[in-house]
């Protein structure tokens, strides 16, 4: 199966992503969902604004998935990231990994989210009570 890579303005659809990744040969599915929270470093956050360098982000995500697939022999993966304005409680990122056994699914999912944060050209602007700022890391 070709990995699913979604970069979109629209709200992310967790159920559809899980459905797309599920396979009769897989006994475990791990879902990581990143949510916009209302506080950061002691500030009250109003909302977040995500910006993406789309062509490059797509390419970098494909590369991360390929690395994970090589390392854990996983076949069924979906990575979705939303951009634009996101309100508190909305999902910014969803990663779904389905594997025959649970341990590879946990490890691969963790690897994908950690690497994504470091290398995929996506930026987050925090709009808080005391002004707005691009967040690094």
């Amino acid at each position: 199966m070709e990995p699913i890579i979604q970069l979109t303005h629209q709200p992310l659809d967790r159920a559809a992503l899980v459905e797309a990744v599920s396979h009769p040969s897989d006994g475990g599915i791990v879902v990581f969902e990143g949510i916009v929270r209302d506080n950061a470093r002691g500030k009250q956050v109003h909302y977040l604004e995500y910006e993406v360098y789309e062509e490059m982000a797509r390419q970098q995500i494909a590369q991360i998935i390929a690395e994970a697939q090589q390392r854990w022999q996983i076949e069924h993966v979906a990575v979705a990231h939303r951009f634009g304005r996101l309100e508190i409680g909305e999902a910014s990122v969803i990663i779904v990994v389905a594997t025959p056994h649970r341990s590879e699914a946990f490890d691969a999912c963790r690897y994908i989210i950690d690497t994504l944060k470091n290398t995929v050209p996506i930026w987050k602007k925090e709009v808080a009570t005391n002004g707005e700022a691009w967040v690094e890391g």
Binding site: G34, I35, V36, H81, S92, V93, K117, K124, W134, E136
Partner: peptide
């Protein structure tokens, strides 16, 4: 050419 500032994707 793009100069990529520190990224902050994810959550």
């Amino acid at each position: 050419v793009v100069f990529i500032p520190p990224t902050g994707g994810g959550c």
